[in-house]
């Protein structure tokens, strides 16, 4: 499995994972009320937490994405992005399980997602879950390949 530690692979993975989340966060930061609507549409969080989530989560995507993309804090960034991927996979899976059509809001605004029919929304949710699983695997690769501090100290 030494190929998984290939520095070029890690560099490519970092660019793809970091770049994807930098792309994801842009429209959320530009229009927080639209993202609040997306979070509300999941029907998971209590009302009091919706705005807090809409205010801070896009910035977590931005800074964690930047950390992974630039390599400044790659492991910490990958940890955060891996956690976010699990969060999105869990939320989308839960809504699929209970039959609640949800607009992911990951890469598009609520208004764009609203044009989809219910069947299209469910289909899109599956696609979003598979994409998030892929992104989670990228985060795992970075965590596996990037040296830990204790390894560096021991070297």
């Amino acid at each position: 499995m030494s190929w998984l530690r290939n520095p070029w692979l890690t560099l490519g993975t970092s660019v793809v994972l970091g770049g994807t989340f930098l792309w994801f966060c842009y429209h959320k930061i530009a229009d927080p009320p639209d993202f609040a609507k997306v979070v509300f549409n999941y029907k998971i969080l209590p009302g009091e937490l919706i705005n807090l989530c809409a205010i801070y989560l896009p910035w977590l995507e931005l800074f964690a994405g930047l950390a992974v993309f630039t390599g400044l804090g790659r492991r910490g960034g990958a940890l955060a992005l891996g956690f976010l991927c699990l969060l999105f996979i869990g939320a989308l899976s839960f809504n699929l399980y209970r039959g609640h059509p949800t607009i992911c809001g990951c890469s598009s605004t609520f208004a764009e997602g609203q044009t989809l029919t219910t069947a299209q929304k469910f289909s899109q949710m599956w696609q979003d879950i598979w994409r998030d699983i892929g992104l989670f695997l990228l985060a795992l690769q970075i965590l596996y390949a990037s040296p830990r501090a204790e390894n560096l100290n021991g070297a």
Binding site: I29, P32, I55, Y56, P58, W59, L60, L62, F63, A64, A67, G73, R74, R75, G76, G77, L79, A80, L143, R148, A149, E150
Partner: peptide, 24 residues
């Protein structure tokens, strides 16, 4: 794990500061 955790703390601190500032 210590280095990763420290990086995560720094990221979270930046998130808190930037999110709050942007909203204000």
């Amino acid at each position: 794990m210590g280095k990763s955790f420290l990086q995560l703390v720094v990221i979270l601190a930046l998130v808190g500061a930037a999110g709050t500032a942007w909203n204000l």
